[in-house]
């Protein structure tokens, strides 16, 4: 909270570090997945939405409309609601981006995710654990690899293979990846097959 000021009120530790990194997933038709692994994960939803490139042309700067649209589309595809999700990896490029994403994806009403987070509801053992991987801020942001890294974390959790950061009974997870300061948002919902 006392780190160098970057763009008021965001300080250095509010901003994700752009890093090197790599991640990979193997995608296969579900009926063939067991040829490659004993613990396949099913993609219940893969949804994308877009918005204007320029931030100043957006309807509201405290909401990413692309996130809202992609989230709603993903829930419809999976025939699920936010209550069914056990954990979520959100695109916390800045600390405020995590707060907005939790709200935009429907886990909290607008304006309440700050308190929700401070109350520990997004921590391990909270109502909806957010960014058990550390997210973009604590794990680093290797831009193109970030979205895949989010999927990796959800897969580890669903396979009960996440070690000290394992969520009890992790069954359904969501990932939320953003490009171009919100010009593009991609939301996935994954579950044990």
């Amino acid at each position: 909270m006392k780190s160098t000021m970057v763009a008021d009120p965001l300080r250095l530790f509010d901003c994700s570090p752009i890093t090197d990194g790599a991640a990979a997933v193997i995608v296969a038709p579900l009926d063939r997945a067991r040829e490659f692994t004993d613990t396949p994960i099913k993609v219940l939803a893969s949804a994308q939405a877009s918005d204007t490139i320029t931030l100043h042309d957006r309807r509201d700067i405290s909401t990413l409309d692309a996130t809202v649209a992609a989230g709603q589309k993903a829930f419809r595809m999976a025939k699920l609601t936010h209550k069914d999700i056990d954990m979520v990896e959100v695109h916390d490029c800045f600390s405020i981006a995590e707060i907005c994403a939790i709200e935009d994806l429907g886990f909290c009403r607008k304006g309440t995710a700050g308190k929700f987070t401070a109350d520990g509801e997004t921590a391990l053992g909270g109502k909806i654990p957010v960014n058990t991987s550390g997210g973009l801020k604590a794990c680093g942001h290797p831009v193109g690899a970030t979205g895949i890294k989010q999927v990796y974390e959800i897969v580890k959790q669903i396979r009960n293979d996440a070690g000290k950061r394992q969520i009890d009974g992790a069954d359904i997870g969501m990932t939320h990846n953003v490009g171009g300061t919100g010009a593009t948002a991609v939301v996935h919902i994954l579950r044990r097959a």
């Binding site: 000021m5 970057v6 763009a7 008021d8 250095l12 100043h56």
Partner: peptide, 9 residues
């Protein structure tokens, strides 16, 4: 002015 920030870095 709709909104603003002060850039320090």
């Amino acid at each position: 002015i709709i909104t603003y920030t002060v850039i320090h870095t």
